[in-house]
Amino acid sequence: MSQSNFSALRIGLFGAGRVASAVGPALAAAGHQVVFVASRTPGPAAALAARLPGCVALPPAAAPLPAAVYLLAVPDAAVPSLLAATPWPVGAVVVHLAGALPLAVFATQPSVRGGVLYPLQTFSPGRVIDWATVPLFIEAADLGTEALLLGLARSLSPKAAMLDSVQRLHLHLAAVLASNFTNHLLGLAQTIVAEAGLSFELLHPLVRETIDKALAAQPSAFAVQTGPAVRHDAPTLAAHAAALAAHPAWQALYAQLTASIQAQAGLPRAA
C-alpha cells in the first residue's frame, strides 16, 4: 500500500476480461475488498471471483451489491449500455477504466457520481504487472469523487495524477502507437522470418536496443531513426518491396511507413 492514510474500500467489479483480471487481484493485494464480479460471461466471472477473497460472481442482470466504488472494466463500447441497464444506487461512484472514453459518458446518469481511473499499461493473461510502476490517471465529476479515486489509485501505484478527458485521449492515442502498433509490426516481423525458416529470437537484441535507444533519445525518438528509409536507400527499399510481393497489404504498409519516416526527416519520397 503506497499511502500512509490508506482506507480500504468495498469495490464492485464489472468485467472479467484482461483488464478486470489484472485489476481485481491488484485491488485485493492492496487491501481492498472486491465484493463481486459481474460479467456477461459467467465462466470467467466465476473464475476471477474465486481468486478474490470474499468475492462472488453476479449475473449481468443482477442488481449490484453495496460498494464504495463500482469499476467498469469492460470494452469502451459496452460502457454506455452498461450504465443504462444497471440499477445504480443513488449517489453511487461509478468509474470506467478507459483511455479514450470521456468523462461526459456519465451525463446520461445524473444520479451517479462518475469518474475515470485509467491505467496506462497493457494487460495479457499470464503476465505479471508491477503496479508500482503503472501510471494511473484520474478524472471525476466532483471533488469528493476525485479525492476518493486519487486515494484508490495511490493504494495501487505512487504514479497517480489528474488528467482531463482531452489529454487522456491523446495519451491513449500515443499509447496505441507505441504499444499496439509496435506489437503488430513485431508480429509481421515474426511471420516474415518464420517464412524464411529463421527464428524470431534473432531479432530480440535488435528490438531491445531499439526500444532502449528510443526511450533514452533526446529530444525525441526521431533523433535516433536508422534504416534504409531515412538513408534514402532506394535499392534496398525496392528489394524489400519485392520480398513482400506475397503480402500486398504489408507491402503497402511498408511503403506508407517509409514515406512517413522520410517526411519526418525532411527527405523527398522514394520513387
Rank of each mutant, 00 (worst) to 15 (best):
G187I: 14
P228H: 04
A175V: 13
T182S: 12
A147G: 03
A85G: 15
I192K: 09
S81F: 02
A100Q: 14
V176Q: 06
P53H: 03
H96G: 10
V19W: 08
L152T: 10
S124C: 10
L71Y: 01
P205V: 11
V166G: 07
F181W: 08
S124H: 12
P60T: 05
P60S: 12
T122I: 04
A259L: 12
A29N: 09
F36K: 00
A63L: 07
A132N: 12
R269W: 08
L136A: 08
L169N: 08
E201F: 03
V112M: 02
A50F: 02
G115K: 02
M162A: 13
A229G: 05
L215D: 13
V56P: 00
P219L: 14
V224K: 03
E201K: 15
L169P: 11
A30D: 12
Q256C: 15
A243G: 09
V176G: 09
Q109E: 07
A246P: 07
A50E: 13
A104V: 13
F14M: 12
A252V: 08
V74Y: 04
E146C: 12
T122C: 06
H240E: 04
L198P: 11
L215F: 08
L48M: 12
R269F: 06
A241Y: 03
A26P: 15
A217Y: 05
W88C: 08
A132H: 15
L52R: 00
A100M: 05
I192R: 07
S199Q: 09
W88H: 05
A84P: 12
Q262C: 15
D142T: 12
P89V: 05
